[in-house]
Amino acid sequence: MMFEGFMVNAWEVASIVAVVAGVVGFFTVLRGAAFAAHSIPNGSFAGAAGASLVGLGTLFGLGVFAFAGALGIGLLGRRGRHDAVTALMLVMMLALGALFVSFSSEYAPEVYSLLFGEVLGISANAVLPTLLLGILCLLVVAILYRPLMLSSALPEVGEARGISAFAMELAFLGVLALATTMTVPVVGTLLIFSLMIGAPAAARSFTDRPAVAMALSVAFALAIVWFAIAASYETNWPVGFFVGTASAAAFVLGRVWAYARARMGRRPSARPSPS
């Protein structure tokens, strides 16, 4: 049944992943870092391919590439445009990935599964590492919450108060890399992206308060993942299909809600006349 045996692992791990994606995604959307959130997981795929080639653990390769990508984006993006630098990092990592994959003679299922995840096939010993990495991720965000928030909204004001925008950028990208390392083996590079963007982007249509938006973001991510697992189990369609479409649906729902709320005039959305 859906709640028995190996499926228990799937529920547990996917729930941890959803919480982390909801929290990290909240800051990703806040900082307009969606492209980095796309590039780091996708580029880190190359690390896993390389690691499996030389006989190291794929998780190790994934982590190394995720952090290298984050560091590259952070350091090179210090001057000039972030998007160009992010694209460059992605392209470099993908090029390496193509090379590694071409070197590996046999089909490497664990590497390919990184693209789409293997939620339904998660083993029991994946639960603990995922949990520990997830807790670490949340801990870092909890510690940096306020400075990161100010630096994301008003970097110059933060700088003036001694909060280095560069340090915050590196810390954020580090959290993103950490989240990538723990979530990609579960939901895959393609899906973590939709989860990290869809849920928080939808959440902020429903509330003006940062803490509530973050909580909603986590709630949406959980709902999306749970729905996707159940639907996938029932239909045998890929989990990724359901995660992606549910994320997009949540976003659309948020927009409709915001529009309706503005129309109903319940929110003081129109500017109060300057006194």
């Binding site: 919450y145 400075p147 909060i163 003006d208 938006a213």
Partner: peptide, 21 residues
């Protein structure tokens, strides 16, 4: 689209330099 009200931004001025909750 920033989910941050005026008063939230002001509150950040109170203790944004500090770490933790």
């Amino acid at each position: 689209d920033l989910p941050l009200r005026g008063r939230d931004l002001v509150a950040l001025g109170f203790d944004a330099g500090r770490l933790g909750p």
